[in-house]
């Protein structure tokens, strides 16, 4: 792709793009989480803005629809005083590589400083970053806001931030990730982050048809029985059942799925008494999570959204200043 060195880091090891959590050094991840903490208080102030990215142009390029992620990126950029331009480009209007890069070239000609990219194809953000490098525009930065099944690094980072906020030390934690791991870029990013930070016990729980082949190779244990898999864990991360990505009969029905893998109070009772419940949203109530659990006192699903803005502010300000 882009030579031997990690394309996200410059020669001094500074973060210049955020493309994936895979291969990102632990100290870089910790530095992003540390930087996000003071940004979290900006949202509570009278003036919810700091001047760091004043005059910078951030383009939100969404080739796949998303409300929450696009909105939180937009809020984050605006709280950094950047100018934000939202482009919602239907997947149908771009066929493949060449037209994507033509779009990029045009936006660079409009003096873009940063692209926040969501795309259905794995590797789209990498492709843009390597194109910018190859065309002599290394000062333009790229943030991957979700690429195919590959990764969603800012979601992974906000999940890590949330876990650290409530549980402090990754080296003493059991984390269970439940549901549709196969289609989940959120799960992939989180697993990479958790293992990089030394989490000793990461479990994935789901039916065989919704777990990727050879998922054990990512350093996780695999469970098909939820009651057994969730036992004694500190953190339960529920994944959205991605009906829109399902091709073929991977599931009997959503009702059947809820019976075996939906998080109910009864199943949650098997986790530690102070276990937290997370979900990247949007939730399918009654499919992967029961309403009383989603709205219950152990749910940190809404704090995840708030933390997500701070984490995205940290990422954008770190790479724009590199």
């Amino acid at each position: 792709m882009m030579g031997k060195r990690n394309p996200q880091l410059d020669a001094d090891g500074k973060l210049v793009h955020l493309l994936t959590l895979e291969g990102l050094p632990a100290e870089t991840i910790v530095s992003i989480l540390d930087t996000a903490a003071p940004f979290a208080s900006i949202g509570e102030r009278e003036v919810k803005k700091v001047p760091l990215m004043r005059g910078k142009a951030v383009f939100n390029l969404f080739f796949e629809s998303s409300t929450r992620t696009r909105t939180t990126f937009e809020i984050a950029a605006k709280r950094l005083s950047a100018d934000v331009i939202n482009l919602n480009i239907g997947a149908s209007s771009t066929s493949k590589g060449e037209s994507l890069l033509d779009t990029i070239d045009n936006l660079v000609a409009m003096n873009a400083d940063m692209f926040v990219v969501r795309h259905g194809q794995s590797g789209a953000a990498h492709l843009i970053a390597s194109h910018l490098q190859a065309t002599g525009k290394p000062h333009v930065h790229v943030v991957n806001a979700g690429d195919g099944r590959h990764g969603h690094p800012t979601q992974g980072l906000l999940d890590l931030y949330t876990i650290r906020h409530y549980k402090r030390d990754f080296r003493a934690l059991s984390v269970a990730i439940v549901g549709d791991v196969l289609h989940s870029r959120v799960a992939r990013s989180l697993i990479h982050g958790l293992t990089t930070l030394g989490t000793p016990d990461v479990r994935v729980i789901g039916p065989k048809t919704l777990l990727p082949a050879r998922v054990e190779g990512m350093g996780v244990s695999v469970h098909h029985d939820m009651r057994e898999g969730i036992a004694g864990c500190d953190v339960v991360v529920m994944l959205r059942l991605q009906n829109e990505r399902m091709k073929g009969a991977l599931l009997p029905s959503s009702g059947e799925f809820f019976k075996h893998y939906g998080l109910t109070a009864d199943k949650l009772a098997r986790a530690k008494p102070d276990a937290i419940v997370m979900h990247p949203g949007p939730m399918n109530r009654g499919v992967e999570i029961d309403s009383p659990v989603a709205d219950g006192e152990r749910s940190v699903i809404l704090p995840q959204v708030t933390f997500g803005i701070a984490v995205r502010m940290a990422v954008m300000s770190m790479i724009a200043g590199a």
Binding site: K14, S31, D34, T35, A37, P38, S41, M318, G321, A322
Partner: peptide
């Protein structure tokens, strides 16, 4: 110079 590492929360 970019963002300095170790920023703290103003209080």
């Amino acid at each position: 110079k970019g963002l300095k590492a170790g920023a703290r929360r103003s209080d």
